[in-house]
Design a binder for these strands. Structure first.
Lengths: 226, 226
DNA sequence: CGGGATATTGACTCTTATCAATGCCCGTGG
DNA sequence: CCACGGGCATTGATAAGAGTCAATATCCCG
């Protein structure tokens, strides 16, 4: 269904690149239906509560969607990889913020263009519906993880999920910090670190530097993840 | 948007009532576009993994959507009140199970009818999209609660949410047991009970029997919920 | 190659879970 | 109408899991 959206709304081929950061976000060039944009590591793509004028599709890199409590506690609800779309909202405000985990390329669509196009193309609406339902299912899976799984299970499930995105490759490059992982899994970074150590002791994984994880025994990992 | 769905797909007026429980679920009468059905307290409306042939709209009562881990841990992802729809899935299997918390009346739609109708009516697809996005937002709010809020905050937030559904009435009737609340909030029933006791001590609520809660100080409750 | 950010590890604390006993409410049947 | 019984809820004592605080260690990134 991502294909459909991309087909219905082909991004203009990478003109105006490289654009960096938020300032260019409101560029008049965005009047075009879809336009390529880049964001550096840790750059904000949009902020919580901001008018939701744009919808994004990841071309390369990883994006995190997060929400803050007043006292600074943070929950990351999703990491988005190439092919994923994000930023599409029920109303006209962004419910959460989006930041680049690595340097990121996206295609930006005008929300209005999407909405307008959707009155003409039933297929497009169906694509958006499908997209949203896939997001809903992923989020529900996350609810189960956060509500009922212990720290070890969460980390094991996270690694398997990351491996699945990497087309099942058993060597996973983690784009994000332990802190981000913790905020995604509802843990602290220390606990994430300890659980990784524990998974190593079990022989389920091997770390090669902090960011590269070999899944030695996916079977076992899967058994541990629930 | 629920109105739209109801308009596009008017349930046949309560024929074949009262029907009880799962056995009648597959009744040939369901060939009609929308049909009324009733379920008794604790009855299963559909099970996890079951073919997702139907979509439901709550007319009266409360429905819980839950998922089990292999060892029996349970997470309730949502409680549905009158007006809510549930059971619409990305693929053709139910991702979670649905059970009647109280006795429940629903209108049942054939998934195929919806899908077929949606190829004809762009409005209908848009309604389903909106519906799904509202569900997604609620679930994301829940992710924040489960990932980052403590027990007291969770219970306070839960009570406020229940009050909001009851059109903001400050007296809330809890349809569900402490156990269900706990499985929704990612806690144990004992902790839910203790947090309610604590909220009473703070003068934020008053319990009148276990199931009726007076919100004495919604301000305070809101401040506590984050 | 050096230094700041990131990660690991350890000691201890605190929140929530667990296990257990008791109490309460509500519906049912006498 | 009252008494009984069973689910449901409360409360207490203790344990366990994850958080917090703090001290290194390691890894990249320039």
């Amino acid at each position: 269904m991502l294909t459909q959206v991309a087909t219905a709304l082909p991004g203009k081929p990478d003109i105006a690149l490289p654009l960096r950061g938020k300032a260019t976000d409101e560029s008049s060039r965005l009047r075009a239906l879809g336009i390529a944009m880049s964001f550096g590591r840790n750059m904000e793509i949009y902020a919580e509560g901001e008018p939701a004028g744009n919808v994004y599709k990841v071309i390369s890199g990883v994006v995190k969607i997060s929400k803050l409590l007043p006292d600074g506690r943070r929950q990351i609800s999703a990491f988005h990889s190439p092919g994923d779309m994000f930023g599409f909202e029920v109303d006209d405000r962004h419910y959460a913020s989006a930041e680049a985990v690595t340097s990121v390329k996206v295609i930006v669509y005008k929300r209005q263009s999407l909405l307008a196009a959707s009155t003409r193309s039933a297929d497009l609406v169906r694509d958006l519906l499908n997209l949203t339902m896939v997001g809903l299912r992923h989020t529900q899976e996350h609810v189960l993880l956060l509500g009922r799984k212990n720290a070890l299970e969460r980390v094991a499930a996270f690694l398997l999920d990351m491996a699945k995105r990497a087309k099942g490759d058993s060597v996973v490059e983690l784009a994000m910090t332990r802190h981000d992982i913790a905020d995604y899994l509802g843990l602290t970074l220390e606990t994430v670190s300890r659980m990784l150590a524990e998974l190593m002791e079990y022989g389920a994984i091997r770390l090669e530097g902090a960011r590269r994880v070999h899944l030695l025994d996916s079977e076992r990992l899967a058994a541990m993840s629930a």
